[in-house]
Amino acid sequence: MSEERKVPKRGISTYCFYPQLGVNMDLEDIFMHMQDMGATGLEILADGIIPGYPYPSEEWLNKWFGLIKKYDIVPVEYGHWVESRLYPGQREASLEESLEQLIRDIKLAHYLGFTCMRTKLGVISETLDPVSNWREIIHEALPYAEAFNVVMQPEIHAPTKLTDRMVNDYVEFIEKENTKYFGFNIDFGVFQNKPVPEMARFFREDRVSKPEDIIPLLPYVHCCHAKYYNMSADFEETTIPYREVIQIMIEHGWDGYLLSEYEGPHKEDINHCIEQVRRHHVFMKKILGQ
């Protein structure tokens, strides 16, 4: 049998429709769009998607498993937060308070069928450096991540660069712990090299990562946010050098999930959001050779 060409797989994050959820869309609607596009990898943001979070009802869980089966959905990434400023006056949560949140989410993510987690840690600086005790928190949680087979992944998100010290600290930690259960989700927004029409003021020329910067990190990346800000009428993402990044991923045999995440304008317009995500997947199918 010819060696199956390892190519990244397509999916989407419920983040693409968050202003619509509970207004004129529900989770099943998103699953149907995913099936329409053949993009069955799923990211949810647990707090907002799971009614009763962090204690979903039996009834909702049954419905969840039914929908996953009905629409052939592959749960990929469970987005959650380890809050560090939990109540007034608190600057950094204790190890116990952090672990209580993290371990509970590891178990729930596993039970729902996810293999990755987008673990958002609290920050203590303008440049988004994580809380000072992040190493103890993750270290103590690793045995649970292993037992429940989920990978904890902070998100590397603009304006952080792939070559920043913070990313290097993460790699150092992974090597020291010699663990497969901590890594990171690279958000393609780090490669953005052109401003977004109507949102130019957020673009920071000085914080752009080059596509090749991803190479040394690929072993630690289990899924990515395929960020898109603006899909043109001829199905091109006009602000991010997608082709270069994906070419590198294919060359290095990376075949995890690319989860579409829209952060362009007009998120309150449901038809705009639907059209943008469909254009994004026509574009991704083209460059993935599907």
């Binding site: 004129n24 529900d26 149907m32 769009h33 329409d36 639907i274």
Partner: peptide, 14 residues
């Protein structure tokens, strides 16, 4: 949920 329009976007595929 239904989309407001008569023709639905959801479900449009080969």
């Amino acid at each position: 949920m239904l989309e407001y329009e008569g023709v639905q976007y959801k479900g449009f595929r080969n």
